[in-house]
Design a protein around this nucleic acid. Structure first.
Lengths: 107, 107
DNA sequence: TAGTAATATAGCAATATTGCTATTAACTGC
DNA sequence: GCAGTTAATAGCAATATTGCTATATTACTA
């Protein structure tokens, strides 16, 4: 029904799934890649870099913010976005913890 | 419109997004975790472990197979699933490559 | 205060995802 | 061949996601 039975899963399972959901769109990957190329948290006009309307980009940024992957600080009339350092490393650790559980193949 | 403008993104961006999409559901995370606890590729009746109907689980397994995360081999009347060793490591490497691009925070 | 610039929200249409029941397909054992 | 078991597919309803245009909000500036 397009609805996920969240109550049946553990908190870590839900957290990992939610994080991956935030990364599960090429526009959001592109936004993060763009932020990664910036030395610092420059709020570039993403509409020049990614072919989407301003409101659509704003929504994607919100998803990334909700997932904790980026930080947005108001700076006058514009907004400065950057990778959320602590959370970024935490997420990487979480993913590695998940993938490291696989030791040896059988097949 | 619920449709993603795939043509606007690079192949790596699309690949990373697709992979994350495969991980973006707690049931699929739970399936992978279950496979990780098995020494070998035992095809357990996942319906006992995860509270979903057999067809729904079959669909999730298909998504994981399409993403290359698991391997399924027919074994008589049942089917043996296991982590896809090579691809598993490749995916981990890809994710790490992405997350490692972040060097120093600015804020 | 009025005007401008930048981002966010509202509201919509189209498509995707998730889950179910019912059915089909593929193999096993009799 | 025929029943039983297991996984996959068909087809559906409900919800989620994505994208747009139009509008609202917020902060600066003259």
């Amino acid at each position: 029904m397009g609805v996920t039975k969240t109550e049946a899963y553990t908190a870590p399972q839900l957290e990992l799934a939610d994080l991956c959901k935030a990364l599960a769109h090429p526009a959001r990957v592109a936004i993060l890649e763009h932020l990664l190329t910036q030395d610092c948290c420059i709020c570039q006009d993403l509409t020049d870099v990614i072919d989407l309307s301003q409101p659509t980009l704003s929504r994607h940024l919100q998803v990334l913010r909700d997932a904790g992957l980026i930080l947005g600080t108001t700076e006058g009339t514009s907004r400065s976005y950057c990778i959320h350092p602590a959370h970024w490393r935490r997420v990487q650790g979480m993913l590695n913890g998940f993938f490291d559980r696989f030791q040896d193949g059988c097949c």
